[in-house]
Design a protein around this nucleic acid. Structure first.
Lengths: 354, 354
DNA sequence: CTCAGCCATTGGAGCGTTCAAATGAATGTA
DNA sequence: TACATTCATTTGAACGCTCCAATGGCTGAG
């Protein structure tokens, strides 16, 4: 395994197809075929060409390929301009999976700052025009997000992380079954002996948030537990959450399921303000399994979203569509898993007194 | 402000230089000049060409430009293959700043999975060969990191986030004055009345970690406070940190400064295990100002690294070097800022009893 | 022995841009 | 009037690759 000889790593350098062809004693086109359609070559020719490629450390020049084929093997991904802190803590895992998977398929991720407002779509337009990206991965999709419709209308392949919560589905998407995650949390709490389980969610209107609330409602009803008036709402800030959870605590809930880890931290705060201990006095469950969940004490039981799988699937769906624009849209819904830590225990009343 | 007419957003489409030229009644080269060297054109011609460009929604095709000029206006950034959780929580701000700043300068960020081990450098090589990236931004630099030397040797522009802690500096870098941040934390604690301030750091050997420890030592000595034997070490895990901080608590420290927020969370845990309250009984300071710092209760006083500025500066340094490969290396060291929350208060002994 | 049919390989053109050099018009100078 | 000088613009080629159509050698059928 010696490093390719005759290869200058420097800025200009450039072993071209033609150079390899000369060395292998074939035409440039044959070298091209050796790479893109090896089955066309006679075995011995293929062998000879491959050796020349190896020996010279040849690598096709993407710009030239892109110019000719109009495909850059680039996948565009727009990161939010203003940090929407909602699910940020786990997005790096997503981005990493995107990069990794794309790479394994010979593609790369091109980042751009996804603007807000009217400039949004023109940013996608620009990437198509200038970099001829093969497609896009969307995330942080919102209700009434204009991107899917625009991309479909223009025949641009894309895969979204997040289903459309309104109207018909457009295109391929990967999403997480938030409702199922919350249901699993309710089951876990019921198993521990809880019968008064409250839910602290986001204000109505966000697709994912409403889905999580629905999961809670379904599960408590399935267990024959009270659900009316046991739901609080708060934006994603600790202080607001702490205030919003008050009525639930007043109502004697022994466990709170929050729609995010941030909201769960609000529960922690509210409990401490009442001189109660999270876990010990009232069980708490979060959502996201962000790094903070493992850090706090008591460790926060939380619902882990399989972000790595989500990223991988997004790339898979996207590349499948690039390969076959006419294929049926594919929807992947993944189940999250409950990560149990110290914040969920048997309710005080069930415990044996020492 | 009507949208450009005659422009098909679709996949194939493509207003070319030649089309614009025909419409404006000039040669393609003149259109090229209108964009790249407008001072060469007569004002009236320039005006005419610009109108044609605008009207047709023309955008230069990067692949063609790259083929001709050998510059893709792409900046490579390798994200860690295995998540090094050390500073991950704040890296998204860095990446965002990178993207934003690059974009303002007409460049884009190309992601790749930075491998570990021997394959590391060949990944950089590949990006040069195939995508002809203009340069790289490095992060998570380690002691004896081979990348800087390799890139310099091959004349590839780069800017690193993190100085080299060993041997001579190679190339441009941006870094954070960790020692100064810790010193500010010590000053803050002294001002509150603390005299026994311990330090919980990482094992010796990491450049940034040792720098932070040095800042603590310098500051406590400057204030004439004891420093011997008041330093604990731990890898970046909560459980380890909780164990490592024990001797400091046994020694009667009234405040602990940790080299990371994760370590600080370990302090929280150790304190709670002793039925003590963070802040109330022992003040705690973290480093990073990760999202978790604001979430926990009591809120963790932490040292905020100006990641947005770091990212912006990295791009600035890189592009300056691309423009002038011969310029003197530039080093930017930024001061972090202390974000005071509820975890740092006057020590118990100084407080008036109710 | 000829020729259709097949296979592996080659030649030529062109993707959209910019570089280097050439053109032609307008101006200034002898 | 002739000729050098400047300026604005054009011409032709080339970057590295792949598409498309064409070539020539070989096989087997008539």
């Amino acid at each position: 395994m010696t490093p390719p000889a005759g290869r200058q790593a420097g800025r200009q350098g450039g072993v071209t197809l033609a150079m390899v062809a000369r060395r292998a004693g074939v035409s440039p086109q044959t070298v091209s075929n050796a790479i893109n359609a090896p089955e066309l070559l006679r075995p011995d020719t293929l062998e000879r060409v491959q050796q020349a490629i190896e020996a010279m450390g040849y690598r096709p020049h993407r710009a030239a390929q892109a110019l000719r084929t109009r495909s850059s093997r680039l996948i565009g991904y727009g990161i939010q301009s203003v940090a929407v802190d909602r699910s940020t803590p786990v997005m790096d895992r997503f981005l990493h999976a995107l990069t990794q998977t794309a790479e394994e398929a010979g593609h790369r991720i091109l980042l751009f700052a996804s603007p807000t407002g009217p400039a949004l779509l023109s940013a996608y337009q620009e990437l198509l025009d200038t970099y001829s990206v093969d497609g896009f991965v969307l995330s942080d999709t919102t209700r009434g997000d204009p991107r899917q419709a625009w991309l479909e209308k223009h025949g641009v392949p894309f895969a979204a992380f997040g289903r459309m919560w309104t109207g018909r589905q457009i295109g391929d998407f990967v999403d997480i079954d938030g409702a199922a995650g919350i249901e699993a949390a309710v089951d876990h709490l019921v198993e521990l002996g809880h019968t008064r389980i409250g839910f602290l969610g986001w204000p109505r209107g966000s697709g994912a948030g409403d889905d999580r609330a629905l999961g809670w409602k379904r599960a408590v009803q399935r267990h024959g537990l009270p659900s009316r008036g046991r739901r609080a709402e708060s934006t994603d800030e600790v202080a607001h959450a702490a205030a919003a959870v008050e009525p639930l605590l007043d109502a004697g809930m022994t466990a709170i399921i929050a729609a995010s880890d941030t909201l769960a931290m609000g529960c922690y705060r509210a409990l401490r303000d009442r001189d109660l201990s999270p876990g010990q006095d009232v069980s708490v469950v979060g959502f996201d399994d962000s790094p903070a969940a493992a850090l706090v004490s008591p460790g926060l039981t939380s619902i882990d979203q399989p972000m790595t799988t989500v990223g991988r699937e997004c790339v898979r769906l996207l590349l499948a569509r690039v390969a076959d624009p006419a294929r049926e849209p594919e929807h992947v819904v993944l189940a999250p898993t409950l990560v149990v830590r110290e914040s969920t225990v048997t309710p005080p009343s069930d415990r044996l007194t020492p």
